[in-house]
Computed example of a mutant assay.
Amino acid sequence: MRSTPKSAETRARIIEGAIRSLETHGIAEVTTRRIAAAANVQLATLHYHFDSKEALLLAVLDRLNAAMIEALRQIGRDLAIEARLDALIRASWRHVTSTRDKQIAQIELTLFALRSVGTQWLAARQYEAYVAVYADLLIDGIELPRAEAERAALALGRFILCGLDGLILQSFSLRDEAAAQAGIDALAVAARDHFRRLTATPHA
């Protein structure tokens, strides 16, 4: 299908309608008819742009990923590395807590991608995209040879993402803001400690 400004706008409206439907109803109850209504388009128009519900939901996951990545890219690269680690974790958490319904939809969509035949790659791509952004934001200031610095930055990215994923589930389940904040503080301390271990000079 040839893309035009109008078709791109319609496609974006459909994706936003799908996000609103997911936030309201959850993936189990979302249908293409319900999404079309939320997007204020005809069902035939939706199917013209997306040949299946699965294709649309995967486009939604891409959109949600992009929003998180854009929020992370606002972190200042001029900060010292440990301050940047702290800022990255806290910026991630601000985005999570300000988009709670979208985060739940994203969790559902990730599980959907893992369960659906042929779409597991999207869950992996989502994870790798987050880790790559973290690593890109952290590599400057890691005073190691380039290859070692890249490995350390990726390890830090995985560490941060692992901690955030656990805190998201804990926070959304328990709804205890004090516990969530304590968890973020602890993750920031642990990330700084992990950075120091990863970049420590081996003893002779």
Score class of each variant (00 low, 15 high):
L174F: 14
L167A: 04
Q170M: 13
R151A: 15
S171G: 07
E143C: 11
A129E: 02
L144K: 05
R196M: 07
L138D: 05
V131T: 15
R192T: 02
I142M: 13
F159E: 05
L174D: 14
E148S: 13
I168K: 00
A182H: 14
F172M: 14
E177L: 13
L114W: 15
L114T: 13
V117G: 11
E148T: 03
G118F: 11
I104V: 08
L111G: 06
L109Y: 06
R192C: 08
L114S: 07
Q181H: 09
L137E: 13
D185H: 01
I104N: 02
V96N: 08
V96G: 07
R175H: 05
L122E: 14
T99R: 07
H194D: 00
A190G: 10
K102Y: 02
A105K: 05
A123Y: 01
F112W: 14
S173M: 03
R196Y: 03
T119V: 00
L161A: 11
V133F: 02
E108V: 02
Y134Q: 08
Q170D: 13
A200D: 02
L187C: 04
Y127A: 08
E143I: 10
E128K: 13
R197E: 10
A123T: 04
D136Q: 13
D193I: 15
I142R: 04
A123R: 07
D165I: 14
I107P: 13
A155V: 04
I107G: 13
Q170F: 06
R158P: 00
L154P: 03
I184H: 06
G141T: 14
